[in-house]
């Protein structure tokens, strides 16, 4: 199957001075669960923003469904609508994303931009509120929501646009375990419904739970490797190289010892195996 998203030799630097991505190439197929992992500052969010056409690479080419995405291409109204209808981006900071007076307005904003009928837009908003369990928040302004509620509304505001690809930047960051679990289930259900899910994260347990295809970014902003979650998460040397696991010293009773530590697979004690 041809790649739905294809990046070829993408480079990007902020203010033409600070490098964020260096010569990155990767492909994502339709219906895939895909995770971009790397340490802080490795370029995960920048890569996701390029995929969503919000910023544009300084070098390289980006193709979505075989059509090149560039600043010039997205100036075409028809093509912009084609692209925005199919690609939704959920920001890491929900506060940034929520800008309408109430939760309901927030959910209606996208469908109204797509020029849906008001009744259809309302149907979508209520159905999305139902699956996200936020019906009781309908008339609340976003600044009166908790972190988990804001995240649900932010995801809902994208879901009402019914995109084929969902790009989620650090989706579980700062959320309580119950909301994290809810989001994982939601992502799996959406994927089952045919949506392509792309996440950027440094949470290895999330990658494991989604059983995603994984691309690992290094701290010098390059793709180190791409593979199945099982294989990548077992590869201690790669994770150590890109600073996703580390040597950790701690106490058991009165004795201390050190081991590799990732809060996922490698929190194991060799002397007890």
């Amino acid at each position: 199957m041809e790649d739905m998203i294809s990046l070829e030799g993408i480079s990007f630097s902020y203010y033409n001075r600070i490098p964020a991505l260096c010569d990155m190439s990767l492909g994502i197929k339709e219906g895939e669960r895909f995770a971009i992992i790397g340490a802080n500052g490795s370029g995960k969010s920048t890569l996701l923003q390029i995929m969503s056409g919000l910023i544009h690479q300084s070098e390289g080419k980006y193709f979505f469904k075989g059509r090149e995405i560039s600043e010039h291409a997205l100036r075409d109204k028809g093509f912009l609508r084609f692209f925005r209808e199919r690609v939704g981006y959920v920001f890491q900071d929900s506060d940034i994303q929520l800008f309408c007076p109430t939760v309901l307005d927030e959910l209606l904003y996208g469908p109204m931009q797509l020029e849906l009928k008001e009744s259809e837009a309302l149907d979508r908003a209520f159905e999305v509120m139902r699956i996200l369990n936020i019906e009781n928040l309908k008339d609340r302004p976003s600044y009166m929501l908790s972190g988990g509620e804001k995240k649900r509304v932010a995801i809902g505001s994208i879901l009402t646009m019914n995109p084929e690809v969902l790009l989620l930047d650090e989706p579980t960051n700062g959320l309580d375990p119950r909301t994290q679990c809810f989001l994982v289930e939601l992502m799996l259900a959406l994927n089952d419904a045919g949506k392509t899910i792309v996440i950027a994260t440094h949470d290895l347990s999330l990658v494991g739970e989604l059983d995603a295809k994984v691309t690992v970014l290094s701290e010098d902003h390059r793709v180190v490797t791409t593979g199945r979650a099982d294989d990548i998460l077992k590869d201690e040397s790669i994770l150590l190289d890109v600073n996703l696991i580390h040597e950790h010293i701690h106490f058991h009773g009165k004795s201390s010892h050190s081991h590799l530590h990732s809060h996922y697979l490698f929190h194991r004690h060799k002397d007890r195996e």
């Binding site: 997205l74 100036r75 075409d76 109204k77 028809g78 093509f79 912009l80 609508r81 084609f82 209808e85 199919r86 149907d123 979508r124 159905e127 999305v128 139902r130 699956i131 879901l159 019914n162 995109p163 084929e164 289930e185 939601l186 799996l188 259900a189 959406l190 089952d192 419904a193 045919g194 949506k195």
Partner: peptide, 23 residues
């Protein structure tokens, strides 16, 4: 969860009409 996914999320987006360039 999959039983709760609304029907519209299973639909494919419609093809857009050509509308000129953005300023």
């Amino acid at each position: 969860m999959e039983n709760k996914i609304p029907g519209f999320l299973l639909e494919k987006p419609s093809s857009p009409p050509a509308m000129g360039r953005l300023r």
